[in-house]
Amino acid sequence: MKPPFPIEIDGKVIQVTEGQTVLEVCQANGIDIPVMCHFEGLPDVGACRLCLVELKGVPKLLPACTLRVAPNQVINTQTEKIKKYRKMIVEALFCERDHVCAICVANGNCELQDLAKKVGVDHMRFPDILQPLELDASHPYFVIDHNRCIMCTRCVRVCAEVEGAHNFDIKNRSYKVRIISDFNQPWGESKTCTSCGKCVAVCPVGALWSKSSYQGKIEKKKEAICDLIRKRKVNV
């Protein structure tokens, strides 16, 4: 066990150990940092930018999920600037695709919805960039609706890293990115998908759901996946 050392977060001195991320430290100490692409146990990508924090001496903002602790760090997680950008990120996600809560399976059980409430987004200030996308219901058990996808890539990572199937990946780039199954085929025709349902469990919004759920009723066993990853790591 490496010896702990102190760092300063939001004016508080906290004892940390090498290898921890700033996000882990914050979560363990009751400092609230919103996350979206982060999922406990999955490799972090720093893509959603919601967990941005200020590190003293560094001019750019850094994502807490990939920032490792180091001696003498002074970190601020709740400045006005950061709060403003967090709100703008949530607004950007709403502008990107078609998020209508009233008709969504995940209504009331959605991380994006919760976030919007938390950061205070109640209307759209920026122009939307909506483009109608398809909904793929070819899989016998599950559905993917690209209109609700926020490209957090949790499903891609859980499928590749935890299930090991790598059914999902991303095609194209820029705002044209989409989740794809095998060679951009209908999900139902995928040869790699094992129908394990892990992707559905980790999806933060209503983009992935099981056919047994209906509007406003969705069951997502996120804890089960976290547990699985944790136990596996312990056993390795």
Binding site: H166, D169, K171, S181, F183
Partner: peptide
């Protein structure tokens, strides 16, 4: 390589 990964690279 997984099919989706190759397709992802081609379209990138």
């Amino acid at each position: 390589l997984p099919p989706s990964q190759v397709y992802g690279v081609v379209t990138f």
